[in-house]
């Protein structure tokens, strides 16, 4: 149960960490002046009046970065247990890890060649 106690610490931390930044913001709410008007509350776009909808359509490039990241994220998570156990494994384990990484490098090379990694 020792480890669960460690996690209890994390749980309490998660419950309390929000208090530290919330306190000064609430404190500021108590003392600060509150005189909003329509002009003040305007969206700040360098003094130019805002045109149209804020939720503009974004380019597909962001989505591709997100996808490539997701694939690598899953890959790296598979590698962490491998790395932890590596010390007591053998050459076969090295080969297995090598093959795993090599196959994914293919994906990176493909993305590179298809210019999916370019910022356009």
């Amino acid at each position: 149960m020792e480890t669960l106690n460690e996690w209890a610490f994390v749980g309490v931390f998660f419950a309390i960490a929000w208090v530290f930044p919330a306190l000064p913001i609430i404190g500021a709410w108590l003392v600060r002046p509150k005189k909003p008007n329509a002009l003040k509350k305007q969206t700040y776009e360098s003094g130019v009046e805002t045109v149209g909808d804020t939720w503009v359509q974004f380019r597909v490039q962001y989505y591709i970065y997100g996808l490539v990241f997701l694939i690598f994220d899953v890959e790296m998570i598979f590698l962490f247990p491998w790395a932890v156990a590596y010390e007591r494994l053998d050459w076969f384990a090295y080969g297995a890890g090598f093959l795993f990484i090599f196959l994914l490098t293919d994906a990176l090379i493909y993305a590179w060649r298809k210019r999916a990694l370019e910022w356009v």
Binding site: P24, A28, W29, A38, K41, T43
Partner: peptide
């Protein structure tokens, strides 16, 4: 600076 920021008006933009 922290004290100054405490007393600054906090604007929430419309929308």
């Amino acid at each position: 600076d922290a004290l100054k920021m405490l007393t600054k008006e906090d604007i929430t933009p419309s929308g």
